Simulated assay, not measured.
Amino acid sequence: MSAGPPPYSRTKFAGDLLFTSGHIGRRTDGTLDEGIVEQTRQTLENLEASLVDVGLNRNDIVRATVYLSDMSLWSEMNIPYREFFDTQLPARSAVCVGLPAGILIEIDAVALRDTNESSAAL
């Protein structure tokens, strides 16, 4: 018997805020790279694909939470993270959690649909 679709939404709007579920670095073919740099890049690409599906993009992200399997991965994770966001860095928290085998990172985010409002860093 198939388990069916997962019991959650990838994205959910609440007014102009979009909340995403956690994204990991699994490719569409089900494979997963071993390194944190590669997994972070793929995780961010997967996150952006969910945003694009609802008409948003990476620049609309105002907050992100990064879940790492080991905090020693922090510095390496920041390399592709900084490349992805360039100069428009969202607010962010990072925590160490237990993740399923082989998964080094998971990221969820909050994005703002209406970017006409000022979202400059204070």
Rank of each mutant, 00 (worst) to 15 (best):
S72Y: 01
A101E: 15
L32Q: 06
D86V: 06
E38M: 04
A64I: 12
G55I: 05
P90Y: 00
L104Y: 04
A91N: 04
V97R: 14
T65P: 00
T40G: 05
E48C: 05
Q88H: 14
S69V: 10
R26L: 04
G102W: 07
D60S: 15
S75P: 00
D16P: 03
L18G: 11
L44T: 02
T31D: 05
G55Y: 07
S69M: 08
T28N: 05
E76H: 07
I24E: 10
V110F: 08
L44Q: 04
N59L: 11
H23G: 03
V62C: 11
A109H: 06
P80M: 05
V66K: 01
D53S: 14
G15M: 02
I107C: 06
L32T: 05
S69D: 13
C96V: 13
T65V: 12
E45P: 00
I103V: 15
S50N: 13
T65F: 06
S75M: 06
V62T: 14
G35H: 05
F13W: 08
R27E: 08
N78W: 07
H23E: 14
S50I: 02
W74S: 13
V52D: 07
G25V: 01
L73P: 01
G25S: 03
R63W: 14
C96W: 03
E83F: 01
G98E: 15
T31R: 09
V110N: 05
L99Y: 10
Q39F: 00
I24N: 12
D70V: 10
L73M: 10
A49C: 03
D108G: 07
S69N: 14
G22D: 14
V66T: 10
I36A: 01
D60A: 15
M77R: 03
L51P: 08
E106A: 15
L44W: 02
V52S: 08
V62E: 12
A64L: 09
L56S: 04
G55S: 08
G55W: 07
V66F: 11
N78G: 10
A101V: 12
W74A: 13
R82D: 03
F13Q: 07
V97M: 13
S75G: 11
L47E: 08
D86G: 05
D60P: 01
L99T: 09
G102Y: 09
T43Q: 02
A14G: 02
S21D: 14
L68I: 08
R58H: 10
E83I: 03
G98V: 14
R26K: 13
T28L: 09
M71D: 14
L99F: 11
E45D: 12
S75A: 15
